[in-house]
Amino acid sequence: MRTIKIVVNGTAHDVEVEDRTLLSDLIRHDLRLTGTHVSCEQGVCGSCTILLDGRPVRSCLMLAVQAEGHEVETVESLSGGEATPESLTSLQRAMSDQHGLQCGFCTPGILMSVTAAQRDGLDAEETIAEVLGGHVCRCTGYRGIRAAIRQVLP
């Protein structure tokens, strides 16, 4: 066990972790931020995507100890901790408007990747081709998600 310092959604934490603990497990089970989901646990599906120092990464492919000293953003940060229809970001709103989700399990990872693309100034078609390709959805298909991206990105 070792203690690491990590900033998550603007809050500094000192947490004790095993060397083998995944960043996804630290976020979900120790910090209880369960909006980050784990589906394949091998980096393929994109469900566990978080932002590390602003860049999208798979939290299931990182050890928690590798995140020491870094800043993490999860889906819970997007609407400032609020959870009402009125508090949604334009991207969250668009996903609902365009029926870009059903079960919602893959959704947080997609939101984080597209949020990073939005900040990086990518346009809708680049985001659909380069970013959405890193995410698997099994309920909805991708039409609604693409429409949501086109609703918010240029």
């Binding site: 931020l33 369960t34 909006g35 609020e82 959870a83 229809p85 508090s87 969250q92 609902s96 989700l101």
Partner: peptide
């Protein structure tokens, strides 16, 4: 949808 989109939905894990 707002519950699912804000990471507040509770799945079994």
């Amino acid at each position: 949808d707002h519950v699912l989109l804000t990471g507040n939905a509770r799945y079994v894990d």
